[in-house]
């Protein structure tokens, strides 16, 4: 049974954006197993920055190890709330007021201010958060954007995580993109880009500015890579047409011999 649990856990952790519910219903037949899978769902939600709308609020908040208060409790600085999160049903409850204090909390709030402008300008459906970490010495910044279009058989997620160290003004993190397309097939884009930058001016706004610059540069680079993969590796695998630019004359193919002139064209060999 333990290997059974390990296998289903690996399925849950590998779920594409917006499809963890499907994976769950496809693999779990016994209710007992659901309760055993708590750690797998927690890992998925914290790594994928699952978002949840708190009861009575329209603003999504983020589940991550950086916003965890231990147990199934999480908090959000922007809305000054803490809440209980059910990792299996992805629902929030027991919302309470939660005030973060200290120098890093102030820094996080000032980063959030800069971030809100950037996120609004470049994401149509994103959540973001900033959280003091490592005994108030650093701030973790999280951005996650989801777009689910199951009717058109695709789902996508952009997520980034940065750690800002105010003692060195260094910003380090990574951007990950996950796209799933599954109409009569199963195609997945998975990317991972690490980012390192130095924040020079006006700390809160400066962090947002560096993130904006890094993400813009990355998206442009990623777009270029689609073109170079298409023109490079993809083309090298299979030609659209033979060198002769003509389809094969199948009636004559029995008489074709490799190394000979083929179909009247120039087969260079």
């Amino acid at each position: 049974m333990s290997s059974h649990k390990a296998i289903v856990s690996s399925f849950v952790e590998g779920a594409p954006p917006g499809e963890v519910g499907h994976i769950q219903s496809l693999t779990i037949s016994s209710p007992n197993l659901v309760s055993e899978l708590g750690p797998a769902f927690q890992k998925y939600n914290e790594e994928q920055f699952t978002t949840v709308k708190l009861p009575g609020s329209s603003q999504p908040v983020i589940i991550s190890s950086h916003s965890s208060l231990g147990g199934n409790q999480y908090y959000d600085i922007e809305s000054s709330t803490s809440f209980t999160f059910d990792h299996t049903t992805q629902k929030a409850s027991a919302v309470e007021s939660y005030v973060s204090e200290g120098p890093s909390a102030d820094l996080a709030k000032s980063i959030l201010k800069g971030l809100s402008i950037y996120v609004k300008e470049h994401f149509t459906n994103a959540a973001y958060g900033a959280y003091p970490i490592e005994s108030d010495s650093k701030v973790a910044v999280v951005i996650v954007a989801n777009k689910y279009s199951p009717n058109n058989f695709w789902n996508g997620r952009w997520r980034s995580l940065y750690i800002f160290d105010p003692s060195t003004n260094s910003l380090e993190g990574s951007i990950k993109v996950d796209v799933h397309y599954y109409e009569d097939g199963n195609v997945r884009l998975l990317t991972n880009k690490s980012v390192a930058a130095s924040v020079s001016s006006g700390v809160g706004a400066g962090v947002a500015k560096e993130i904006a610059a890094a993400e813009k540069k990355y998206q442009e680079e990623l777009n270029r890579s689609f073109t170079s993969l298409s023109e490079g590796a993809f083309k090298a695998l299979r030609r659209q047409l033979p060198v002769t630019r003509q389809k094969i004359e199948w009636d004559k193919v029995a008489s074709y011999r490799l190394g000979q002139d083929i179909g009247g064209g120039a087969a260079r060999r």
Partner: peptide
């Protein structure tokens, strides 16, 4: 692979200002 995937990335994040 190259059209749809790029479009979805563009739907997630807009390079230009919204």
């Amino acid at each position: 692979y190259f059209g749809k995937a790029k479009d979805v990335v563009g739907d997630l994040r807009s390079i230009g200002s919204l």
